[in-house]
Simulated scan of single mutants.
Amino acid sequence: MITTILSNNSQLFPHTLFLAGIPGLHAAHIRISLPFCFIFFVVVTGNGVLLFLILTECSLHQPMFFFLAMLSFVDLVLSLSTLPKMLAIFWFGATAISSHFCLSQIFFIHAFSAMESGVLVAMALDRFVTICNPLHYGIILTPIVVAKIGGLVVLRGVGLTISFPSLAHRLPYCGSHTIAYTYCEHMAVVKLACGATTVDNLYAFVVAIFLGVGDVTFIAYSYGQIVRTVIHFPSPEAHATAGSTCTAHVCVILFFYGPGFLFVVMQRFGPHTVSAAKVILANLYLLFPPALDPIVYGVKTKQIRDRLFKILSPKQIDPT
């Protein structure tokens, strides 16, 4: 689909680009790859286990866990679209990347990052209804409503970012073909162009503001209403229960928007040169949340812990 959309201007976009890796640390790429391998293992294992538990356990077929399954799937796609190529750069110096793969990577990174933000909004809505309107939870978040929210998250993510590859592809590239990162990010590719990039910069800025500010505002409003409701709970035990219900989601929000905010600030307002710190932060922005999300939910969510322990614990054999 991406290739078809971009076929008209193929003479302008280089057939092969190159990923620079981490500037100044090329000699240490093998050592740097070790934590990346560990992160890859955690991402695939953790999110794979979460998806398996949610899909196979009927008691987890609830809106909260449906959104969590979506989050795990998005995290898997984000990691699988970037980490294997990073490891190939670190291990084999395989810096070359084809134009089609680069443009596809731009789409997957931005579309699924937008979907992740949308899933976090949906999870905030779920927490809001759970705490502020528990008696009507089943009436408000019916399976049909939950499915529509999930579809909207996907359509919004794709609709807002499908233009990124075509916008980058239409530009002339007459200078360096080396991208100063370990993956193809839209603005990093656009910076290689020798033509006017005003449209690209403006559209990327509008999308970032719409997703970042808009989604964070909705989440903040939801938690503001939750705090107002919790304050009026009659007992400390009720406060603790409400806090436990939201802790995992709050941690995941910080993991996603924290590095993302720093990365956007460095991209927009930092020095033009790309440092090792900027590249490492760009990697953490994509890899940190997918690795930590399943751990946080596995530790903080009782239903998931119980189901996992039930599977892992040995069956008791009756000696008689």
Results as ranks from 00 to 15, higher is better:
Gly157Ala: 04
Asp200Thr: 02
Arg31Leu: 14
Cys246His: 00
Leu160Gln: 04
Val206Asp: 08
Lys191Cys: 11
Ile89Leu: 04
Asn8Arg: 15
Pro234Ile: 02
Tyr137Gln: 12
Phe164Pro: 08
Gly270Lys: 13
Gly157Asp: 08
Met64His: 14
Gly270Gln: 00
Leu286Gly: 10
Val121Asp: 03
Phe263Cys: 14
Ala193Ile: 12
Thr182Met: 15
Leu53Lys: 01
Pro271Arg: 07
Thr16Asn: 00
Asn133Val: 14
Pro172Tyr: 11
Ala96Asn: 06
Ser313Thr: 10
His136Leu: 09
Phe112His: 10
Ser99Met: 04
Ala282Phe: 13
Ile253Pro: 06
Gln105Phe: 01
Ala180Phe: 04
Phe92Pro: 00
Met266Leu: 09
Asn47Ala: 06
Val74Thr: 11
Met123Leu: 12
Ala208Tyr: 08
Ile32Gly: 00
Cys174Arg: 14
Gly46Ala: 02
Pro234Trp: 00
Phe218Met: 09
Leu155Gly: 10
Pro236Met: 06
Gln105Lys: 04
Leu167Met: 09
His232Tyr: 12
Asn133Thr: 15
Gly175Ser: 03
Thr229His: 13
Ile30Gly: 09
Val158Cys: 13
Ser99Tyr: 00
Thr245His: 15
Arg305Ala: 02
His29Arg: 03
Leu120Trp: 07
Phe112Ser: 04
Leu141Asp: 01
Leu50Pro: 03
Gln105Glu: 12
Val129Cys: 00
Val189Asp: 02
Leu19Ile: 02
His136Glu: 06
Arg268Ala: 07
Gly195Val: 07
Leu211Asp: 07
Lys191Trp: 00
Pro84Asn: 07
Phe255Tyr: 12
His272Met: 13
Ser113Gly: 07
Leu160Pro: 02
Phe66Tyr: 01
Leu51Phe: 12
His136Ser: 11
Ile219Gly: 05
Leu51His: 09
His186Met: 14
Val74Trp: 11
Leu171His: 01
Val129Glu: 01
Asp293Ala: 09
Asp200Trp: 04
Pro289Tyr: 13
Ala27Glu: 08
Leu141Ile: 05
Ser7Ala: 09
Ile253Tyr: 05
His272Lys: 14
Pro290Trp: 07
Ala111Glu: 01
Phe233Asn: 05
Phe73Ser: 12
Cys58Asn: 13
Gln11Lys: 15
Gly150Asp: 00
Ala277Gln: 05
Arg228Ser: 10
Thr245Trp: 15
Leu25Gly: 03
Thr320Trp: 09
Val74Ser: 12
Ala20Asn: 12
Leu50Arg: 15
Pro289Glu: 15
His186Asp: 15
Pro294Glu: 07
Val146Met: 08
Leu19Cys: 02
Ile179Asp: 07
Pro319Val: 03
Thr245Glu: 15
Leu19Glu: 01
Tyr297Ser: 01
Leu292Arg: 12
Asn8Tyr: 15
Ile109Arg: 09
Thr217Ile: 10
Thr197Ile: 08
Leu171Ala: 01
Leu51Asp: 02
Arg307Ala: 14
Ile304Lys: 03
Gly24Asn: 03
Asp318Thr: 14
Leu50Glu: 11
Asn201Met: 11
Ala248Thr: 01
Ile149Gln: 11
Tyr223Phe: 11
Ser81His: 07
